[in-house]
Design a protein around this nucleic acid. Structure first.
Length: 586
RNA sequence: GGGCUCGUGGCUUAGCCAGGAUAUAGCGUCGGGCUUCUAACCCGAAUGCCGGGGGUUCGAAUCCUCCCGGGCCCGCCA
């Protein structure tokens, strides 16, 4: 068994390994030819683990899967089974072989959570990951499309950390492109409303400027001139760009912080102009012989990577593009980490493929790209430029207000401070959960009615289960069953936990580590979000059917308290991975 | 026009990559449950040609193919 700090890790996986060993031995002794890599298992409602092995092997003999399944199970040796201490019963049902966990599996799970506490569920992966997400242009506030990027990226970073990786999260700030030139021009023409949140002040003038440009194309000449000045290092122009960008970023940061989204670093594109890295990248691409002139612009041929169209890496006016600066950014990141992960919207599918191809052409490490499909409005797609968007702040505020109404209705006697705190936890949690639970490859249409009708069996449901567990534990401290040293290793005899709801909850808790592992490996956080809900579901059923505080038998009471503690801990750890606060009371 | 992607009960959605046991769950609807640890809870019921056709297979929501519908993209925006 794999041991880390004295404990068997990945209990579910170890269970699976034991089952595999037992079944292979049985199949071989029954006269079948089977290799380890051919074994496949599924989690099933009929058992803790099931296999369709008989379907694969039937051709070797009878051709009857049910007969094959029975033959294999009959051939299981008692000795093998004795060594597999996590495996309980193995039965057949027609062609299926159903496997159940042992009592030791259950008691070990509870003991593990009780001793590991907030570290329960952590993985053993290693390596440094640089994760980039959100990176919205600093030309206005975040809108509901950006929220999906931020929540997906932030949840991913939390899950990867839980899986054991060293993760650094970056926001790539476009402080130098055409859009920022427009912002800078706008800020010089129109006064900024300093009363407003700074990102809103910026977008006001940005939208006006774009209206001007639509009417008068000659403004574009001013914009181009500004871009050239910046690339040539003109101090005054750079300062005006930086001033506008700082305002927008300040506002964006405030919004991100409100929804528990954390970035370790804000990296500015301009640094790759200043350092000359951009021109260096262009030179090296040019040296590959894959570039050519196209109407004065420099383009690179990526046809050998499957891209029909060439990629422009330098404008005909000599300035660089986002794509070029992004190449420099990735070259800068590569030596700092083992893996790079970028979270982009669906509009970046093509360009991110070209980016990867160009990096390959240069012989560089390439990023893994996580794509999420668009969030649009009933009337069409959102556009900061046209001023058509619903801001993240607006959505978050309304979600918090909605949550406040609920808590005010349910706990009117509580303090204003309590209600506000819970409203924020629930409002933000609901927003995050509703977004993260859906697979990122589904496009969605935003509408207020659906957004504000936050599903009760979403974040609030999970948070409520946590609050109920906390409540029981608080009362057990008050009645003295839990001493001042709390619940730790060896607190109770867990073989007393034999109710079906107890076993179901323990089994659900035991799968935590595997779900983290799978979610981290596939970079699909929604699968973990669904697990978190199932975990809360198991707890709610346990809570309904199994009394804890008014149990006479003190040993049984202590065993159940330990399970409540294990449930609370698992739920808290799951919520933490989702960036959702776990209230002690709500 | 070409490429990518999605299409699962009234609505939202899991499962699809590695095909198999009555297709997952929530909302909504209908019915039941608080003198018992917080009812933002629990239990039960109804609702599905898994977009459509064809194919592969003993077996297809899952693989292949064509079609229909939504989304995104198709060089000097990001």
């Amino acid at each position: 068994m794999t041991q880390i700090q004295g404990r068997v890790i990945f209990l579910f996986i170890e269970f699976k390994n034991q089952v595999q060993k037992v079944l292979i031995a049985a199949a071989v002794s029954a006269g079948y030819d089977i290799k380890e890599e051919e074994m496949s298992f599924e989690v099933s409602e009929h058992a803790d683990l099931a296999t369709r092995l008989a379907f694969q092997l039937m051709a070797q003999k009878s051709g009857n899967p049910a007969a094959t399944a029975k033959e294999i199970v009959d051939a299981i040796s008692a000795d093998e089974l004795k060594n597999a201490d996590l495996v309980g019963k193995i039965t057949t049902q027609g062609p299926y072989i159903n496997i159940f966990v042992s009592d030791k599996y259950l008691t070990t799970t509870v003991e593990n959570v009780v001793s590991e506490k907030e570290n329960y569920g952590s993985g053993k992966n290693t390596g440094k990951i640089l994760l980039e997400h959100t990176s919205a242009n600093p030309n206005g506030p975040l809108h509901v499309g950006h929220i999906r990027n931020a929540i997906l990226g932030d949840t991913l970073s939390r899950i990867l950390k839980k899986a054991g990786y060293d993760v650094e999260v970056q926001y790539y700030v476009n402080d130098i492109g055409r859009q920022i030139a427009v912002v800078s021009w706008a800020a010089s023409k129109y006064p900024l409303d300093m009363e407003k949140k700074p990102d809103y002040a910026i977008v006001d003038v940005y939208v006006k400027a774009n209206e001007d440009i639509a009417k008068d194309e000659t403004i574009n000449e001013h914009i181009e001139a500004l871009m050239k000045k910046v690339e040539n290092g003109d101090k005054e122009t750079i300062e005006s760009f930086t001033g506008a960008v700082d305002m927008a970023v300040a506002g964006i940061s405030e919004t991100l912080l409100l929804m528990n989204v954390k970035h370790d670093k804000f990296v500015r594109e301009s640094q790759f102009i200043e350092s000359g890295a951009v021109w260096d990248v262009i030179d090296r691409l040019d040296a590959t012989g894959k570039t050519k002139d196209s109407d004065g612009a420099l383009v690179v041929d990526l046809s050998e990577y499957g891209f029909e169209k060439t990629l422009v890496i330098r404008r005909s006016n000599g300035t660089s593009l986002y794509t070029t600066r992004d190449l420099a950014y990735h070259e800068w990141k590569a030596p700092q980490c083992d893996r790079m992960i970028d979270v982009f919207g669906a509009d970046h599918k093509l360009i991110s493929g070209q980016l990867r191809a160009a990096l390959q052409l240069l012989g560089d490490k390439t990023p893994e790209v996580v794509i999420f499909e668009f969030v649009s409005l009933p009337e069409g797609s959102m556009s900061t430029r046209r001023g058509v968007f619903i801001t993240a702040d607006d959505l978050l505020k309304q979600m918090i207000d909605k949550a406040y109404e609920e808590i005010d209705k349910r706990r009117p006697e509580e303090s204003e401070e309590f209600k506000k705190k819970v409203a924020r936890m629930v409002g933000i949690g609901s927003t995050r959960y509703d977004i993260i639970k859906v697979s990122s490859d589904k496009s969605t249409v935003f509408d207020w009615k659906t957004a504000l009708d936050f599903e009760k069996q979403g974040a609030p449901f999970i948070q409520y289960a946590h609050a109920r567990a906390s409540n029981i534990l608080t009362k057990a401290v008050e009645d003295g069953t839990i001493g001042s040293d709390g619940i730790g290793p060896g607190f109770a005899n867990y073989t007393r936990l034999i109710e079906p709801q107890e076993a179901a909850l323990i089994k659900k808790i035991a799968r935590f580590e595997q779900l983290i592992e799978e979610s981290a490996a596939s970079l699909k956080p929604h699968t973990f979000a669904i697990y978190a809900r199932e975990l809360a579901d198991s707890f709610s059923q346990f809570y309904r059917y199994v009394p804890v505080l008014n149990v006479e038998d003190i040993e049984l009471k202590k065993a159940r308290l330990a399970l409540v503690y294990a449930g609370k801990t698992a739920i808290a750890n799951a919520l933490s991975c989702l960036g959702i606060d776990a209230p002690e009371s709500m």
